[in-house]
Design a binder for these strands. Structure first.
Lengths: 187, 187, 187, 187
DNA sequence: ACTGGCGGGACGTCCCGTTGAT
DNA sequence: ATCAACGGGACGTCCCGCCAGT
C-alpha cells in the first residue's frame, strides 16, 4: 500500500538520479561520498538508500540510461546526431562514465548484470542501421560492414574520451572527415 | 655516500613502478590499495614509500612515462606506429590511464604539476610532425592542420577508449580508413 | 528534525567528553589513541566522530571548558578557591592540560582558534577582580597591579605543574604564604 | 678497541643531544620524528641509534641533565639564580620538559629508571640548603621548613609553566614578591 | 663509525550502509 | 517516507628501529 502517489515516487527517483549525476560529475565516482550525494540531492542517506540499495546502483542506473539513450539515438538519428549529443553532454560526467568499463572488468559479476539490463531494454542492433545505410549507397561497400562499424565506434569513443579530457573539440569538422572516409558520395 | 649501488636503486624503482602498473591495471587507481601494491610489487609499505612520497606519485610517474613515450613515438614513427603501440598496451592499464583526465579536472593543482613535468622532458610538438607530412604531400591540404590534428587525436583517444573498454579491435583496418580520409594519395 | 531528543544528544556529547577526558588523563594526548577513546567512552569511532570532527576538537573542547570554568571561578570566588579547585582536579588531566601551550606554540593557527572561542564566551578579565581587591585594601598597592597578577599566575601555574608532576601538595599553607610573604625582614 | 678517540665519542654524543634538544623544542616530543632529529642533528638514523638505544633515551638524558643542573644550582646559588636560569632557558624546551612528569606517570617503569639515574648523580638535598638559610635568619621560622620548600617548588614550577606557555615574565618582580609577601596587613 | 633501505605496525580519518525512531 | 545516530572496517600515511652494506 503505497503512501504516496507513483508520480511522487518516480519524481523522487529522478531527483536522486540527477543529483547523483551532478555529484559524480563534480567529484568522480569514488570521491562522490554519500555525504556529498546527500548535499547535491537534497535528501538524507535514509531517503537515498530507500530508493537505491547502494551507491553503485545509482551510478549503474545512470550509465545504463546513457547507454540506452545513445543506442536509440544512433539507430534513429544516425552517427552525427549521436556525436553531437555526446558533445552536448557534461564532459565531467563523460569522464566518470569512462570508468564503467574498468569497473566491469574489475568486478566481472557486473558484466552479466549489465547484459541483463541491456537486453531487458530490447535494443535493436546498431549494425542493422549501418547495413541500411550501406544499401542506400551512403556507405562504401568495398570494406566489410564490421570494419566500418568498428571505425565508427572508435571515433565515437574518441569523441567521448577527447571531450572528457577537457579538450574543446570541433565536432563538425571531425564528422566531415569521418564522412569523407566513409561515404562514397562525399568526395 | 649511498650504501647500495645506483643500479640497485634504479632497479628497485622500476620494480616498484612495474608492480604498481600491474596493481593499478588490475584494480583501478582507488581500489589498488597499498596492501595490494605491496603484494604486486613484492616490497613492504616502508620500502615503497621510501622511493615515492605517496600513492599518487606512483600513478603520476607511470602516466608521465606513457605520455612522453607516446609523444616521442608519434613524432619519430608516426600515427600508425603509435596506434599499434597503444593497442599493444595492457587494456586494463589504458582504462586506468583514462582516469588521469578526471583526476586532473577534480584536482586542478595537478594540471600544473603535469605541465611542469612535461616541459621538463622538453618534448617537441606532435603538430610539427603533421606539418612535415602535409608538406610531403602525404596529408591533404584542403583542411586546416588544426582540424586534421583534432581528428587524429580523436581516433587515437578512440582506440584507447575502445580497447580499454575490453572490445577487441582490428587496428589496421581502422588505420586504413583513417588514411583514406586523410591521405590524398590513398584514393 | 532530529530523531532523538536533544537531551539524548547533549548527554552523548557529555559522555564522549568525559570519556575523552579520562582517556587523555590516563594516556596523554598523543597516546590516547582512537581505539582507547572508544574503549573509555563506550562508543564506536563512528559515533565519536559524528559528534566531533576530529580528535583534537575533543581535547580543545575540554581545554576551553576548563579555561572558562577557572576564569569564572577566579572572578567570582577569588584566588584561593581557584587554587583549591585546581588541586581537586585529576592531576593526570592537569598534566595533559599543560601540553596545550606547547600545541599552540607548535601549531600557531590554534592560537587564534582559542582566542576566538574564548572571546565567544565573553569572559570578563580576571585583572578587574584584582583591582577590586586592591581598592578594598586587601592587596598591597606599592607594587603595580601587573606584577601582582603575574605573581598570582605564576603561583597558580605552579600549583598545576607541581600537582601534575605527581607531588602531593598542602595548598592551604602555600596560599597562606602567598598571602603573608616569606621573608621575616620584609615585615 | 675504539677506532676513534674518546673526545670524538663524547663530542658526537653532545652533538646528538643538542640537536635533539632543538628538535624537541621545535616540535614537541612526539612530533620530533626521527627524520627531524636527523635533520637537526646532522647525522643519520644509524649514527643516532648507535649512540642511543631509542628516541626516548635521548629525551630522558636531556631531562636528567636539566634536573641535575637545576638541583646543583639551587644548592650552590640559591632560588633566585635558579629562577633566572630557568627563565634563560628556551621556553619551547621547557614546554616539552613538562611532559616528563606525564610520561613517568603513564609509564611507571620510568619512575625507577629516573630514580636510579638521579641517585647515581648523588645529589644532596635542596632542603638542607633551605635549613641553612633558615638558620642564617634569612628565612622565617614560624612556618615549618617543609611548607617553605613546598612553596618554593610551586613558584619555581610556576615559572617553568608560565614561561613555557609563552607568556613573558618579569622574574625579578616575582622573586621580589616571593621575598616580601603580598598582603600589606601581614607587614 | 656511519649510512639508509626496508619491514611492519599503528595511527587518525573517512566512509558506507544499517537501524531504530519519528 | 524520511531522518540522522551509529557501527565497524579499511584506507593512506607515517614512523621507529633493525641491520646489511660500505
Amino acid at each position: 500500500v503505497p503512501k504516496v502517489s507513483d508520480e511522487h515516487l518516480t519524481a523522487r527517483r529522478e531527483q536522486i538520479l540527477e543529483g547523483a549525476r551532478r555529484a559524480f560529475a563534480k567529484h568522480g565516482y569514488e570521491s562522490a561520498t554519500v555525504a556529498r550525494l546527500e548535499e547535491e540531492i537534497g535528501l538524507s542517506r535514509g531517503a537515498i538508500f530507500h530508493y537505491f540499495p547502494d551507491k553503485w546502483s545509482l551510478f549503474f542506473e545512470l550509465a545504463v540510461r546513457d547507454q540506452t539513450r545513445w543506442n536509440t539515438l544512433i539507430i534513429e538519428r544516425g552517427i552525427d546526431d549521436l556525436a553531437r549529443t555526446i558533445y552536448a553532454e557534461n564532459p565531467d560526467w563523460l569522464g566518470v562514465y569512462l570508468e564503467l568499463a574498468r569497473h566491469i572488468r574489475t568486478h566481472p559479476e557486473l558484466a552479466e548484470q549489465l547484459e541483463q539490463r541491456m537486453t531487458e531494454e530490447e535494443l535493436p542492433s546498431g549494425k542493422a542501421r549501418l547495413r541500411e545505410l550501406q544499401e542506400e549507397g551512403a556507405l562504401r561497400d568495398d570494406v566489410p560492414l564490421d570494419k566500418l562499424a568498428e571505425f565508427v565506434n572508435v571515433v565515437l569513443n574518441g569523441i567521448v574520451a577527447q571531450y572528457a579530457s577537457g579538450t574543446e573539440l570541433d565536432v563538425e569538422s571531425v564528422l566531415k572527415l569521418v564522412h569523407e572516409g566513409l561515404d562514397p558520395r562525399a568526395k
